[in-house]
Design a protein around this nucleic acid. Structure first.
Lengths: 129, 129
DNA sequence: ATAATGCTTCCCCCAAGGGGAAGGTAAAGA
DNA sequence: TCTTTACCTTCCCCTTGGGGGAAGCATTAT
């Protein structure tokens, strides 16, 4: 099928699918006459796979790695699990950072009257006073 | 003072401080003969202010806005508080997304043996089976 | 015949700087 | 006085993951 239907079935944009072809992640066949990309069922499966992995916050490079493992029918599940745990740890780190930021900003917002007067504890805090 | 000391006092890199000058956020004077940027105490205060705001996850454009409010001695604190609350909401949204991702990935990781065998529930989930 | 899609490549754009080259400047040491 | 060293400048390419849009074929519908 052509790229349009492939994107519909994979739930991705044309730009995205073409990008994956360009970086060699999901490489369809190509019509020699028209130059059109031709996607098969296996390509669709890969696109859907990558789409889901991206939604799980895996980077494109990590997706490439996962795809390699996905295609290797003999790889130990250990490797996949290790990648997943690493990703969970990254998410944990980011969660803690964001929570800390939120706490600080919430404290500042609570201390600011937020009215017409110019005095503002938020700006005071940012300016180090 | 020159840019080197300014960066030391503001806790930023030279690249960053030059970038802020280029985009017109913190614009030092400039020595006409040497072309060197010359930073004064007020510039240092602004750099420190922006540095802190960036650490609070405000974008550069938001920092520019905050800086404008910071410099306007008559602005109502309402405006600053509104920006802060918007930022807190953004952080909340991202927190929820990350938590959801983490829960799903944790479930997958728990269901995967992670041994030498090739069977892997994580890949199965990603491939939609 | 022509208009409407659909496809291609090509190039620039985003945030927020980082890395490094090539070259001017200033102060300290030999 | 000469040279090294440390700072400074501008300029250009690189990053992530594509988005926007132009210019130019192909196919299909009217």
């Amino acid at each position: 099928m052509q790229i349009g239907e492939a994107t519909r079935r994979a739930g991705l944009t044309v730009k995205t699918v073409r990008y994956y072809a360009n970086i060699g992640m999901v490489t369809p066949q190509q019509d020699i006459v028209t130059g059109y990309r031709i996607y098969g069922e296996d390509d669709i499966a890969k696109l859907q796979f990558v789409g889901k992995a991206r939604r799980f916050d895996f980077s494109v490079e990590e997706c490439r790695e996962l795809l390699g493992l996905y295609e290797d029918r003999n790889r130990p599940s250990r490797e996949v699990k290790a990648l997943t745990i690493k990703k969970i740890e990254e998410i944990d780190t980011r969660l803690a950072e964001l929570q800390s930021l939120k706490d600080e900003l919430s404290g500042l917002a609570a201390s600011c009257d937020g009215d017409h007067r110019p005095d503002c504890p938020i700006l005071n805090a940012l300016s180090g006073r």
